[in-house]
C-alpha cells in the first residue's frame, strides 16, 4: 500500500488534488482503493473511464459479453477493431492506454454465486453495479450484504435512470432488496430490447463515478439509502428515501436471527 504520491501522480491528478475535499490524502486513498465493477455496457463504460482517469488504483472489470456493433452507439470505450472481443479485455486495453498508472484486472465472467467475481466482493472497498438484469443485481446486493461491502447501483432504460447506494457496514442501512424485493422486472428491461440514449446511461454512469470517488476519498455521499430517479426528457430528478425493511430476506432481522442459529 502506497503511503505517498509520486511526482507523476501529483501532476496528473493536480486538478482534483487542489480541491480541499480531496487533497493529497484523498488522492492517496483513491490510489490504494480496490473497486469491483460489474457490467461494462453503457453504464460501466463511463464509470470505468472516470475512475481510471481519476487514479483509482485497482479496477476489477467484470463482464462475460463481447463487443457488438450495436453497442458502439453508447459504449464509448470500444473501437470497431474490438468487435467480438471480450468487453472485459477490450475495456482494460483502452483504459490502460488512458492511464498506465493504475492496475486493471479484466474478468471475463458472469457474476454468479460460484464466480471469482463474487468472492472478490469480500476483498474490495466498493462494488459498482452496472449490470443489465435484475437477477444479477439481486446477487450483487446479496454478496455486498454478506461481505459488508459498499454498493453503488445505477440503472437506465429509455430516457429513465435510477441511482442508489448502500453501505452494509452501517447498522441501519437498507439494501437493494428492501427497495426491489423481486428477482425479475415486468417484461424485458434491457437496453437492447427497450432502447436507450447514450447520454442517459452516460448521466447515470457519471453520477455513479462521482459517488464512487466521494466514497473512496471519505466524503459525505448523497445517495446512501436514497433513490434518485432521473427523467431524461424533462431533466427532472426525484429523491426517495429507502429505509431498512426489518422483514427483508436479505438484510433484515429475520435473516440475522437465522444466521445466529446456523452458526
Amino acid at each position: 500500500m502506497a503511503n505517498h504520491l509520486s511526482d507523476q501522480q501529483f501532476l496528473r491528478y493536480s486538478a482534483q488534488i487542489m480541491l480541499p475535499e480531496i487533497g493529497e490524502c484523498g488522492q492517496l486513498k483513491l490510489a490504494n482503493a480496490k473497486v469491483l465493477l460489474v457490467g461494462l455496457g453503457g453504464l460501466g463504460n463511463p464509470v470505468a473511464a472516470y475512475l481510471a482517469a481519476a487514479g483509482v488504483g485497482y479496477l476489477y472489470l467484470v463482464d462475460d459479453d463481447e463487443v457488438e456493433l450495436s453497442n458502439l452507439q453508447r459504449q464509448v470505450l470500444y473501437r470497431p477493431a474490438q468487435l467480438k472481443q471480450a468487453k472485459a479485455q477490450a475495456a482494460a486495453a483502452q483504459l490502460s492506454q488512458q492511464n498506465p498508472l493504475i492496475t486493471l484486472s479484466p474478468i471475463q465472467q458472469r457474476f454468479s454465486l460460484d464466480s471469482d467475481a463474487y468472492r472478490l466482493v469480500a476483498d474490495v472497498n466498493l462494488v459498482i453495479d452496472c449490470s443489465d438484469n435484475m437477477a444479477t443485481r439481486q446477487l450483487i446486493n446479496q454478496a455486498c450484504v454478506r461481505y459488508k461491502t459498499a454498493l453503488i447501483v445505477g440503472a437506465a432504460i429509455g430516457f429513465d435512470g435510477q441511482l442508489i447506494s448502500f453501505d452494509a457496514n452501517q447498522l441501519e442501512s437498507a439494501c437493494y432488496h428492501c427497495l426491489y424485493p423481486f428477482s425479475d422486472t415486468e417484461g424485458p428491461q434491457n437496453c437492447a430490447a427497450l432502447g436507450i440514449l447514450g447520454p442517459v446511461v452516460g448521466t447515470i454512469g457519471s453520477l455513479q463515478a462521482l459517488e464512487a470517488i466521494k466514497y473512496l476519498a471519505g466524503l459525505e455521499m448523497g445517495s446512501f439509502n436514497r433513490l434518485l430517479r432521473f427523467d431524461g426528457k424533462t431533466l427532472q430528478s426525484q429523491h426517495l428515501a429507502v429505509s431498512k425493511n426489518s422483514e427483508c430476506v436479505v438484510c433484515g432481522q429475520q435473516r440475522e436471527n437465522t444466521n445466529e442459529i446456523n452458526h
Binding site: D132, R137, T185
Partner: peptide, 9 residues
C-alpha cells in the same frame, strides 16, 4: 409515486 424498477445498463 408509483414506478417500475429498471434493470438496464
Amino acid at each position: 409515486s408509483i414506478f417500475q424498477a429498471i434493470a438496464g445498463g
